[in-house]
């Protein structure tokens, strides 16, 4: 337990908190874990990751002034995409820095999902240039899970892909799920989950390996109102932790708090 608390404290200091404040937060966390009779690693997940979430939460709650934008995480210049004779995207430009949220809007069929796949590297653009950071998380609009596996098995699978040991992947996944007010059932398979719960699983899988850039394709489909609010709070927590987030959305009232809006216009 002491190792975990020490790791948390040193990571908090590394992320910019005063040593006294970091010590205080680490002590509080240790007490909370003791109250639940579980090791802190089981309750809060890996110390390094929890420190990032703590700092993000502190900045959201205490600092109305936004962090300065960080380094460029994604840069699109003159990106286009054609399928045979049909132009899906033409001359798309976008730059997103760490600590920024960009929303991609437009009519159905205007190429929003295609653009996100290009950003991820799953689809090759026909023209233009793309630069992006290496660590990227991608959350598709639907699919992206295995129907016969439970949430924890998904965490193990995606954790293995990212080079994490199974125990750490599971504890990180459970912790991230709790931030979306979700406790994964031990036996519930993805195919037995509601649409909203499956999207929560999708979100956690996209974030499991702590990427610097998150690409989210309308990830809130099926969310109830409370989860929808939690989702946007989570997006802003990621932003305030220095990550870059690109969200495809068609809900215009989401746009007031984002840093960039890329309107792809009418259907291609």
């Amino acid at each position: 337990m002491a190792d975990w608390v020490d790791s948390l404290e040193s990571e908090l200091v590394r992320l910019g908190l005063q040593p006294g404040r970091a010590r205080h937060l680490a002590d509080e966390t240790e007490q909370q874990a003791a109250e639940s009779d579980s090791p802190p690693g089981e309750v809060f997940g890996p110390a390094v990751l929890y420190a990032r979430h703590l700092v993000a939460a502190l900045r959201v709650s205490s600092a109305p002034a936004r962090l300065h934008a960080g380094p460029v995480m994604l840069s699109l210049a003159g990106v286009s995409k054609r399928y045979r004779r049909q132009t899906v995207l033409a001359d798309v430009n976008l730059t997103v820095r760490g600590g920024e949220v960009a929303a991609v809007v437009g009519a159905n069929g205007c190429g929003k999902s295609t653009l996100l796949r290009i950003c991820a590297g799953l689809t090759r653009p026909s023209g233009g240039s793309v630069r992006r950071t290496r660590r990227v998380g991608f959350v598709p609009q639907d699919g992206g899970t295995v129907g016969g596996l439970t949430a924890e098995e998904h965490f193990t699978l995606f954790g293995a892909a990212a080079g994490m040991v199974p125990g750490r992947a599971r504890s990180t996944g459970v912790h991230l799920a709790s931030r979306l007010a979700w406790r994964p059932g031990a036996r519930q398979r993805a195919q037995q989950m509601s649409g909203g719960t499956r999207q929560k699983l999708n979100l956690v899988l996209g974030e499991l390996h702590a990427p610097d850039l998150l690409l989210l394709d309308e990830p809130y489909q099926g969310f109830d109102q409370g989860t929808y609010v939690d989702f946007w709070q989570q997006v802003f927590a990621w932003r305030d932790a220095g990550r870059a987030v690109v969200v495809v959305t068609h809900l215009l009232h989401d746009l007031q708090n984002v840093d960039h809006v890329l309107d792809l216009g009418a259907s291609a």
């Binding site: 991820a120 799953l122 990227v136 992206g144 899970t145 995606f158 899988l205 996209g206």
Partner: peptide, 19 residues
């Protein structure tokens, strides 16, 4: 066929095709 949707995400997360 059932894994078609998850494979690209695993690749993006860092898995190799061989894996």
């Amino acid at each position: 066929n059932a894994s078609r949707g998850v494979d690209p995400r695993l690749r993006l997360t860092g898995a190799s095709v061989l894996g």
